[in-house]
């Protein structure tokens, strides 16, 4: 007898199914065509983080403008130990890429991330510092020396 039956919570069920006086009066939102000019990312202002450009060029396509990734495909960079924890691991992921199943915030991700060892130590330090201090993250910066040390030990 391990069949599980859930009777739906449908106290308001009959009322809704018979139409008429549904209490839901919200209006339907329309997805408006967005004009290309509105889609343009804002031009950089003086205060822009030096890692933002690298993020937009190499990271945003998968991890998205808000750092939340793509459900079921690319993991989020927000409030996760991968980003906020020890720097060696995240530097290593950027340098060497990542493959294999990982768990991030209760979801499984299994996509391949390519190696980004073609970026300079300074560029990797900048982009990781940007990610660790953006999207609600608040962790300290990564230095080019820290990147160089991981690169030396991993042969990249």
């Amino acid at each position: 007898m391990n069949k599980i039956y859930f009777v739906f919570a449908f106290c308001a069920w009959g009322l809704i199914s018979c139409g008429g006086s549904s209490s839901d009066s919200s209006t339907t939102e329309t997805v408006a065509e967005t004009k290309p000019t509105q889609e343009e990312p804002k031009e950089e202002k003086p205060q822009v983080h030096p890692g933002m450009g690298i993020y937009k060029t190499y990271c945003q396509v998968c991890h998205q403008a808000n750092g939340e990734g793509v459900p079921g495909m690319n993991p989020p960079l927000t409030q996760t130990e991968y980003v906020l924890g020890e720097k060696e691991r995240i530097i290593g992921i950027v340098l060497n890429g990542l493959s294999g199943e990982i768990q991030v915030k209760g979801e499984t991700y299994n996509n391949v991330m390519a190696s980004h060892s073609f970026l300079t130590d300074q560029q990797i330090a900048n982009v990781l510092s940007f990610v660790r201090s953006s999207f609600g993250n608040d962790a300290d910066a990564v230095t080019p020396e820290e990147v160089a040390a991981v690169r030396a030990s991993s042969g990249n």
Binding site: V31, Q64, N66, E68
Partner: peptide, 15 residues
């Protein structure tokens, strides 16, 4: 059928 995203503009998929 449209309107699934529930927003005028979706900049990130999770929106």
């Amino acid at each position: 059928a449209t309107g699934f995203a529930g927003a005028d503009s979706v900049m990130s998929t999770s929106d």
